[in-house]
Computed example of a mutant assay.
Amino acid sequence: MNSTTSTIDDASRLDLRKQALCDAEMRQAHYLSHPVVTDSLHLATEPVKEVFEVVQHLIIHRFPGSPFIGAFRMGKTHTIQILCDELRRIFPKLAIGTLIAKKHDKPTEKAFWGDALDDYEHGASLYGTAPERRRRFMSMIVSAVLSVKGDQYVFFVDEGQCWTLSEWVWMRDLTNDLKRRGIRTTTIVFAHEELNVLRDMLISTGRTDLIGRFFHTPYVFRGLRNESELQSMMQCLDDPSKHEHPCGSGICMSEFFLPAAYCAGWRLATEAPHLWAAFGQVAARQGRIAKDIGMQWVMSSIRAWLFIVANYDSADFKSPPDSWVEAIGASTYQASLQ
């Protein structure tokens, strides 16, 4: 039975490979849904692994929470998705959810709970008074914990710098009420450096209730800092066991775009020195040094480069001169340094 299954699997895999690499019509369909093209690829980079170790520690020891603070375009939203997926795998009795902090000119509790319900795709996010919406959201959290037979809930808050003192007080009250119901919470905040302004204000005014609950120990959420980290990340795109498309085809991210080059031994990871040097060259135009490069800029550059060089695919493929600089230009990285 196992031998037959293996043969069928191999046949299916070969069929998928032919579709994705040789059949023009099917290749176009797979191209349009490709994770690189749709910007839906989640990579566990070194910075992401560092964050995971901290988050895992906070959860195991049931700390109330801490913020991760980094510049824009560091890949915070994608990191949250990776963390959620991995935590659910490791901790099956852990309930998890993500709130996306919204900025309002005049924050109201009604809008706050409406936003929270909407983040959880609740159909009644626009209906009811503030207390009704709050009870609705509370019920969702309690149900989620009961459904996994646990006693702990992890909130991820994305764009945490958007909330004012009022929103954090409402969040504090929610976690207090959950605790009274036997549910311990951990709140992991991802935010831009603007969050430091709020944290400093809370410290200066003695708001230890909020500092201890959400902002006790800030951690830096960084980008890629050297060529070695960049190369390690790019190696993931060369490995079908980590990322493949179409699913079950055994075609890694780089092979899909440059199949002849890949078959002849070329790997995207060998381009890391060229990409890192190109980032340095572009940064120098602004009198800056390339450091802490966010995943938005890295993946946008790789995506643009793959689009540029796809027509150059061959067994003796070599990266065209200045193609990486051109690709970085398409990512708007230089504009972010101004």
Rank of each mutant, 00 (worst) to 15 (best):
D9W: 01
I8G: 03
I211L: 10
Q19A: 00
L41E: 01
V325D: 12
T108H: 06
L268M: 12
D158R: 14
V197Y: 13
K179W: 04
D119G: 05
H216S: 11
D23S: 01
K110G: 12
L306P: 00
H243C: 00
A191K: 01
S3L: 07
L87Y: 11
G160D: 01
D39S: 14
Q81G: 02
A260C: 13
K102L: 11
T38G: 05
G160W: 03
R222H: 12
Q235I: 02
V148M: 08
G65P: 03
F221V: 02
A29V: 08
L195W: 09
S319H: 07
T270C: 14
E132D: 10
R62S: 10
P240M: 00
R73F: 04
S249A: 04
N226G: 10
E86H: 10
T45V: 02
K149R: 15
Q28I: 06
T79N: 09
L83M: 06
S143A: 14
W113M: 02
E50P: 00
A290E: 13
R13I: 01
C247Y: 13
R213H: 11
W324M: 05
C162E: 15
S12D: 04
M253I: 13
I188T: 08
D177V: 02
D85A: 13
E50G: 07
M171W: 14
N226E: 03
S3K: 14
R89N: 15
D239R: 04
T332G: 06
H78Y: 12
R172W: 15
R133I: 03
S33C: 03
A335W: 10
P320E: 07
P218A: 06
E193K: 15
G212H: 05
F68P: 08
S33N: 10
L14V: 01
E53V: 04
R135H: 09
G265I: 09
F52S: 09
T98C: 07
L230N: 06
C22V: 01
T164W: 12
S336T: 15
E244I: 00
G70D: 12
G150V: 02
W163K: 04
D39F: 12
E132Y: 09
A111G: 08
A304Q: 07
I69P: 11
S300N: 15
